[in-house]
Design a protein around this nucleic acid. Structure first.
Lengths: 209, 209
DNA sequence: ATGTAATTGACCGATGTGGTCAATGATAAT
DNA sequence: ATTATCATTGACCACATCGGTCAATTACAT
């Protein structure tokens, strides 16, 4: 019963959610220990199971909660006035990296969730994700100026190439950051490469300049 | 003692190694179960610990063995006569994907190993990797024609951009393959995008055409 | 028939699991 | 001061699994 949980002291709510987030991200659903969660949350075992009937219910609440939070934060800060698709994707990536630096534990949890094999978890993800992601995807390309492209094929190809390229960049930077200081990372220098790259793309896909 | 193990019937050797590979890849070092390994290998618990004194020794042997095997196979098939750096990187990626399709379990294991947190494992990886990777890296760029570049900076930048781009592509294709048929994947269509991309890069980095 | 090596699986103590529940503490109403 | 209500505790449960051992059995060569 999450109603009981929601009417709880917010500071304690957060402590419990963060403890669970960390544990699930680190160990995965099945190996995550409720004992460990209550220990780091500083509450008793009984209390956790007073708020959530069982492990699965806790996980479900957790996933929905943080998915909502991150999506909201993402679109609050995404600049939708940028009409150039390449520049839009660049800001999108920058924002993604910002959010990853700001909430690394949440991203760890989400990544771990997407790799889960437990049937109970897959079920939860399907329910939550389909609506959430589909709604988000169209908003990502809202208001884009497509008149500069040679034709429709180019648009789709540009999107594809942008997506996998920036993803590769993002992963590499993330890895580098983890190896260097294990905390947040300054992307400024790395983005100089991205600038070069973006100009390259424009030349390749746009009718003129 | 691996000498005992090595003088064992090769078919049984393989059964044991594959079972262990699978289990470690799936669960990670600490959560991997030796009980599960012997069950899928079809041998008794005692026999496993007759060949390897303990869990760590088994893991160590496993890692060294498959690292050797994959590196050897990789360089056996890599075309080092291609002197254009962009084309070389393309064939390199194609080869990597081929090997991933051919030995997905080995790659799963390697990825899992690189994410291990157990101190015992990190120690093993350090010992094995440093020599192995450093030796490989120089071979990757052996015999490359650098006369077409404008200057040294361009070469380094090209390598960086190639690396993270192809990595992003590779990951995306891998994910797609997993979602579609969960087995091997036909990269032919996807590589059309890569062709476009490679031409783009050449234009951007080479002195002429 | 004998010696040697391969192989078994019951067994060990230790640790940890998700979940329960009787008991206690705190708070507010009477 | 008494009572009723709710939050909170942590010892406890039965069970599962862990890495590792070892006396006993089987297979095989001499």
């Amino acid at each position: 019963m999450s109603s009981k949980f929601l009417s709880l002291n917010p500071e304690k709510q957060e402590r419990i959610l963060n403890a669970a987030l960390k544990e699930f991200a680190l160990k995965g659903y099945e190996n995550a220990s409720t004992n460990e969660i209550v220990k780091t949350a500083g509450i008793s075992k009984g209390l956790l199971f007073h708020y959530f009937n069982n492990k699965k219910e806790l996980y479900q609440f957790l996933y929905n909660h943080f998915a909502d939070v991150m999506v909201e934060e993402f679109f609050n800060e995404l600049d939708l006035s940028e009409r150039d698709i390449f520049e839009r994707m660049k800001t999108l990536m920058i924002l993604k990296n910002k959010l990853m630096a700001r909430h690394p534990e949440v991203f760890d949890f989400m990544v771990a969730a997407s790799m889960e094999t437990a049937e109970e978890v897959k079920e939860i993800l399907n329910n939550t994700n389909t609506e959430l992601i589909q709604a988000s995807y169209s908003r990502l390309f809202e208001n884009i100026d497509i008149t500069r492209f040679r034709d429709e094929v180019d648009i789709q190809r540009a999107i594809n190439i942008i997506m996998w390229t920036l993803q590769g960049f993002s992963n590499q930077e993330l890895e580098k950051a983890k190896k260097l200081n294990k905390a947040h990372h300054d992307f400024d220098e790395a983005f100089k490469e991205v600038e070069v790259y973006i100009e390259m793309m424009k030349k390749a896909f746009y009718k003129n300049v």
